[in-house]
Simulated scan of single mutants.
Amino acid sequence: MYILSVIRNRCSCVVGTSRTNIISKSWSSSFLFPKNELYVRTVRAQQRIKQATECPSKFYADGQYLVLDIKKDLVLVNEKRTNDNLHTLLWRPYSDFTSSGFNVTEDAVFLSINDDEKTQFAVPLSSSTEKHADLETKFNGRFVPLRKSLFTLSIAESVVVSQSYSLLQWKRRFNFCPSCGGCLTQHVVGAQKVCSSCNETHYPNITPVGIVLVTNEDHSKALLVRQPMFPAGLYTCIAGFVEVGESIEENIRREVAEEVGLAVHKLDYFGSQHWAIPGSRLMVACIATVHDEEVDIGCDELEDAKWFTPQQVLDAVERVTSQSTKVIMSDPSQLWVPPRGAIAHNVIKYWLKKYHSM
């Protein structure tokens, strides 16, 4: 076990000026601890790694690596799909990168410690790495569009891709201090940067976005919208960026009023999701109830907004889960919603299950 071996070998990393064990107590097997205690220990271990200014080479040597091309928005996945027709991420050991032009200790970013107690990293392609085709052959995988992968991976793995892409893009683009213009120095594992001039510490940014499924009072209808840029037949939930000074509740109330001219009188929180494309976003999803049902589109962003029955919504969900996007788009008359992997898809399914047992 990775963390256990770190403890047994007394590996430590430097945090500030003191040397601190990655996990303060050792144990012979994770089976001896309840899952919640193991979780706490793992999270604290991850935090120590993120804050480290020096890390033992063992962290890298025993780690697992996910390869992304952040300039072309591609991620490396296993060649074969699962029985559910899902992609799976291709994790490779450190030894695979010693002769492929990668500089893991300089370019990789730390992601997490997995259930097998292995450190996981994301590493980008560079001009010195091997070509796509060569890496696909060497690693027995293939590069797929990153945006597509968010819908064709499991929810857990799509979160990993989203995290990886956002951290690697931040590391590549954010190089100068917004306060004084000084050069930023990268922390070892990519969790923060420090200004070499004013010593200010900077962390990856994330932008909050409210997303909402609007329903009428008896939940007999759901309001879905589409933008002009959407593929034919695609409708989704209302969404918009949180403005300065707004809470999520205020953001959603404003967005619904702006876009479809309806006043929200009840709001229920559903859940949240990190989304990396086109930038690092935190999607916060809710279900909003309105009294009035007369829609008045009030912005150029929307092409259409319609009320749909539960059966229509269910048909749209089943269509997108049972057919490929290519097949769906071949018939522009058919309604469909965002695929699995998107929080809009999940909040729609939740509404169907909770209020209509569908």
Rank of each mutant, 00 (worst) to 15 (best):
I70Y: 11
V161P: 04
Y94V: 10
N114E: 07
N78I: 09
V144K: 06
V320F: 05
S30L: 09
G181S: 08
S322Q: 09
Q120N: 04
S99M: 10
K306C: 11
C13F: 12
L184P: 12
D315N: 08
V6I: 08
G182R: 04
E200Y: 02
F151T: 09
Q120H: 03
C180A: 12
S330Q: 06
L125Q: 11
G190K: 02
S12K: 13
L32A: 07
E246D: 12
L68A: 07
I343D: 06
V290A: 04
D292V: 01
R253L: 09
D300K: 15
K353H: 00
V40P: 03
L234A: 08
P145W: 02
I7P: 01
V264T: 11
N83A: 10
T119I: 04
F151W: 06
F308S: 03
L38D: 05
S158L: 15
L68D: 00
F230L: 04
Y235D: 05
E200S: 14
N78R: 15
R281Y: 10
E258R: 15
D116A: 15
L150N: 01
H202C: 02
T236V: 03
V264Y: 05
G182E: 04
R10S: 02
F102T: 11
Q120V: 11
F33S: 07
E37D: 09
